[in-house]
Design a binder for these strands. Structure first.
Lengths: 245, 245
DNA sequence: CGCCCATTTGAGTTTAATCAAAAAACGTGG
DNA sequence: CCACGTTTTTTGATTAAACTCAAATGGGCG
């Protein structure tokens, strides 16, 4: 079941059959959750760790006056609640964007696997650092990029992330976000997002229909976005750890 | 020398004398660096870990056309280059904002200390997670807060962080940033930052002179900023790990 | 079919950016 | 300690990007 997680981690290191088996063992208890539900609320301190197997969720923070910012997209193979083994309480909420299937992993089971499988430990380390790098890149987007650049950058990032877990087909990928959700991600209004999409369609860059995104000209889109994939650290950085050389 | 680091980590757990000694042992080789120098460049893969002992630095990313975004402030007691033990190359640069003294720690020495001092390991884990939480909060600021709110929020955050390492005096703290640097942090122009400062001074909220910030009314400033300190996770979260109960 | 949610379009407003220049503060060497 | 060059801050006038408000259109699903 945790195929997307495995696929993702293998961008960092080659796992052994035993490693993969251990990961499968973790995803035993699976829960289905509908769209627009909170998986975790701000202030929660869950006792198990949740892994998204299918569907999209997001981390978000809400200000007292209602303004909402999505601070991360949680895709299949991503953990919801990384590492509250250390922190007492969550400082943000996690909500579903689509119906989702999550594996609930008892934290002691996870700990045991990490102890016995140093490659998995390292790979999850890598995954954490990449998540932090993505967060930094979002800071750059919100701080420096124009509305058009932001939308373009988001699409490039999601396309690469989805490709990494095998969820693209050619130049097409799922994009189940509404324009309001894109707006909440990019610090824009839905009206303005709509106008940027109009512009990108007009320029022949993308097709976006029935929750699927087709990127007609990826290099051009990346140029517009000032997108540089380096921050995703995709090039087998931990090869020195590979199972079987 | 790594007093600020120790002070910071003790917000998470109480360290033993041996723990503290080990940290002191790490900060043996110290380097002085002038203002506006790069400690690390985008793409570097340094072989040692650098800890800022004194002075301020920042992580920043620069777009191809010159636009620059500061993505984090590195204060005394912060590491420059967390965790490139895993990643091959840095995806951002680290530059000094003031003259700085950094300790250069061989990564194997750090690893050894982490192995032998589980409390330090956990505390550094905590520190990493808090850094991630700060990055998320910046995403909220840049995405949702107005210019005035952003400046106010930054000041609250820096004041709390500095207080945590003992660098405040009453309601006053150092603030060695220029208005251009504040602007690069908040995704604003220096002109607009200047106007917001003018407004905050006029409202009797702050005094900012000769690189020192005095917050005349912290509750009011926090209200304006929609600041909620929860994300800094300051309340002795790891007390179950404390040395001597 | 009809309802609800999401998208699209238009008109007017606001926030923050840009451009330009003056004033103040800082640092350094004579 | 003062003069001078540089950096930083401050102020003003104008412009541009994105927001707000409002209403119409379109799609998906029971």
């Amino acid at each position: 079941m945790p195929d997307h997680l495995i696929r993702k981690l293998e961008h960092f290191t080659r796992l052994s059959a035993a490693d993969r088996l251990a990961l499968h063992g973790l995803a035993r208890s699976v829960r289905a959750v509908g769209r627009h539900q909170d998986l975790l609320r701000d202030g929660d301190s869950p006792r198990h760790v949740s892994l998204v197997l299918e569907g999209w969720a997001c981390r978000y923070k809400q200000l007292e006056d209602g303004r909402r910012q999505i601070v991360a997209h949680v895709l299949p193979g991503d953990f919801c609640d990384g590492y509250l083994l250390v922190l007492r309480a969550l400082d943000h909420a996690v909500g579903t964007l689509t119906p989702v299937r999550v594996a609930e992993i008892p934290s002691n089971a996870l700990m045991e696997v990490l102890d016995q499988h140093p490659r998995i430990m390292q790979a999850l380390w890598w995954e954490t650092l990449v998540a932090a790098a993505i967060q930094r890149e979002w800071t750059v987007s919100l701080g420096q990029r124009t509305a058009l650049e932001r939308v373009a950058h988001l699409f490039c990032e999601l396309f690469w992330r989805l490709r990494m877990i095998g969820l693209t087909e050619g130049d097409t990928c799922p994009l189940p976000l509404t324009q309001v959700e894109i707006a909440d991600t990019l610090g824009l209004t839905n009206v303005h997002v709509n106008r940027m999409l109009h512009q990108m369609r007009g320029a022949g860059l993308i097709v976006l229909k029935s929750k699927r995104l087709t990127i007609l000209d990826l290099p051009a889109l990346q140029d517009i976005a000032l997108f540089n994939a380096g921050y995703l650290h995709l090039e087998r950085e931990g090869s020195h750890l590979d199972a079987e050389g």
